[in-house]
Amino acid sequence: MAFARAVGEPMPSPERVVPPTFTATSIQHDPEHMRGMCPTGALAVAPVGGGELLHAEQHFEYLLPVHLGDVLDVTEEYGRRWTKNSKRGGELLFTELVKELRNQHGAVVVRSRMVLVETPPTSASVDERPA
């Protein structure tokens, strides 16, 4: 319901398939997340070089619909890592995080791939920063 309010979706109902990006909020079900203000999972990754860690890309593959009441199990693993030269100097470090979500019947419902980018310290302009 909080998600629906924040992004202007209709209120959830058992008949309605959940919105396409809703499963990306699965961190909410980690009891340790934000306890004592400490994030877990991808949100806990701190930039090592003093720059910012930003979300560069997000991809979803939908295999089966997800409904209110489904119980999802998430597995996540790091994928590729690569670097690219920043237009403003320094190196951009990209990291991929791949997730697979299964429902209570053991069927894969969603696969997702997140690409995070670590910017070099203070060199990247706002112009080339993703969100």
């Binding site: 309605r16 396409p20 890309e57 991809h59 939908y62 706002v126």
Partner: peptide, 21 residues
């Protein structure tokens, strides 16, 4: 996309974030 085709029709959805909002 979902208001055009319905959420249940969606098979893939991928984006790049190119500038801050």
């Amino acid at each position: 996309v979902t208001s055009w085709f319905g959420i249940e029709s969606l098979r893939t959805f991928g984006v790049r974030f190119t500038a801050p909002v």
